[in-house]
Design a protein around this nucleic acid. Structure first.
Length: 119
DNA sequence: GTTCTAACA
DNA sequence: TGTTAGAA
């Protein structure tokens, strides 16, 4: 079991490289800790990043962290990433994006534009 | 032969 | 979490 022609790993290869069971690997995916792609047939394809992420999870767990706190850590990290993307917005957009759900921002921005040139 | 989902003597 | 059954 090794990388396929495009650099992806099957779950068997990931088991060997991480020492985690397929059961655990799939379970962690359900918790949202990793998100491997799927083939047309539905088989999971893991990237090198997935493997490294699993190794980190394994390390943290071996050092006393439960899956719940590990999950929170990852979610916190992803929230910070999304916040960084807000750094490219104007002050007005920043206020709007932090107060309203994504689905409404586009509408709000249109209203702001009309307010500006609409006297 | 490997992986998937669902379920549990 | 392990393991197993049946399908893909």
């Amino acid at each position: 079991m090794e990388k396929d022609e495009k650099g992806f790993y099957g779950i068997g290869a990931v088991e060997q490289r991480t020492g985690l069971s397929a059961r655990q690997i799939r379970y962690y995916e359900n918790l949202g800790l990793i998100k491997p792609e799927r083939t047309e047939g539905g088989q999971r394809r893991y990237t090198e990043r997935d493997v490294l992420c699993l190794l980190r999870i394994k390390y943290l767990k071996e050092n006393g962290f439960d899956l719940k706190s590990i999950k929170e850590k990852i979610e916190e990290f992803e929230r910070e990433l999304s916040l960084e993307s807000l750094a490219n917005l104007s002050p007005a957009e920043l206020k709007i994006s932090s107060l309203y759900p994504v689905s409404n921002r586009a509408i709000l921005m249109k209203l702001l534009d009309k307010t500006k040139d609409g006297k």
